[in-house]
Design a protein around this nucleic acid. Structure first.
Lengths: 225, 225
DNA sequence: CTACTTTGCGTCAAAATAACGCAAACAAAA
DNA sequence: TTTTGTTTGCGTTATTTTGACGCAAAGTAG
């Protein structure tokens, strides 16, 4: 499918903010550039959009070829168009963010090339292009989205404890939330379902295991935390 | 500023959802197409993005040349990339929405070409391309944004009455809101400022005139209506 | 058996909300 | 002038929601 336009169009790329949650830390995946411009600097992974593919296709291609990942939760963030954002010429970036669940986090961390690395979102180095701005936008989106969409479940395993969910929210929102009030609000909103199972192991009291309530993908709700 | 890419890039356009509020009705500006495809059908106004201009520039160009409007409040909505969205070939659309205040609404309505027309958002005809989807996205954005950003003021005159603001909210949200509770919440949030002036005229009791509180452009707030 | 930690559930005062009542301010009719 | 009807501004009250805690059961470790 060719472009039907006679004159030239700007270059079009997708850039990805890949979030992972591991050991009570929210991290982002960065790539160390091997070419100019911004050689040896850290940047967000990305790729040019091919003529026939959708943005989601482009994102999947980046995730698979550059990062060795399966399909993840993906959501479009914003499209960045500042004329000087790429020193090589006019380039539009459609930013997406992705969420990696903990099981994949470790696999990825183990097999990653040394030019790919997880960074704690509070310890991000200087980034090339306008990627700092993209990263900041992604963090804001995640923080607001978590209050009215069960986006956090993409960052946890299928079964999780109330404490894990609680700590995830504290981590993403950057605030401390009363454990007991959090529990009440989450349960009142029918946000999650108690599976009846318990996590056995080296812990103290064995916590109950919850799962995500699928109905919430349709219904809107509002968590006032 | 040329694209630095060797292979071809998709066509890139901006599409605009222009909202106007007049006589207690929220309307959108539509254009009747004179060429194929979708000849004689209604579509959203739009234009191809020139190599050197930002999206905002492209939007302003559309608003001025096609619709004869000044600069308006503009916000990026979403970027649409379905491969078949344009039958002529691959085309990406960056959608924006714009808000027109009432004084300009009437000027525009008076001088508009007969291929441009305001439509009540509840009486939208069939639209060409994927513009129905873009329109729907814009309505949703407006509804959610009005609760945490004073976006509604762009649709009213500088000075307005509490009743006007109240009716605007009912119209956009599509629900009925208790007049007295609405007043209390708006005033508690320091959403607006009482100017002390009153609107004289043919009404009954002369209502007080309010203005938008500029401080709210920075501060976040949440209206629970 | 005794600490100590984690987890689940409950209480209660304070704040926010929804659902109204009511009278002042004005225009128009009587 | 007086009356009637409408709009506007400001309350009140019962109910719900929230925030800040207490407390004991279920575990582990000494």
């Amino acid at each position: 499918m060719k472009p039907f336009h006679s004159y030239q169009n700007p270059s079009l790329a997708v850039d990805l903010v890949v979030f992972g949650y591991h050991e009570n830390t929210l991290s982002v995946l960065l790539l160390n550039r091997k070419e100019e411009p911004f050689k040896d600097q850290w940047v967000l992974p990305g790729a040019f959009v091919q003529m026939q593919e959708t943005f989601q296709d482009s994102c999947s291609r980046v995730l698979q070829t550059k990062l060795g990942m399966d399909k993840l939760y993906l959501e479009q963030l914003y499209t960045f168009d500042a004329p000087e954002r790429d020193p090589r010429g006019r380039a539009i970036a459609v930013a997406y963010y992705a969420l990696v669940n903990p099981s994949k986090f470790e696999i990825v961390a183990g097999t990653m090339a040394n030019d790919v690395q997880w960074f704690d979102i509070h310890k991000i180095p200087a980034l090339g292009f306008d990627h700092k701005e993209i990263f900041t936008t992604a963090c804001q989106r995640l923080r607001s989205k978590i209050l009215y969409f069960p986006v956090g479940f993409e960052l946890l395993n299928d079964l999780f404890t109330m404490t894990e969910l609680h700590e995830l929210y504290e981590c993403i929102l950057g605030i401390s939330i009363d454990r007991r009030n959090f529990r009440r609000k989450i349960l009142d909103a029918e946000f999650i379902i108690n599976t009846g199972k318990k996590r056995e192991g080296l812990q103290n009291r064995h916590p109950e295991l919850y799962k995500f309530n699928q109905k919430l993908k349709q219904n809107n709700f509002q968590l006032n935390i």
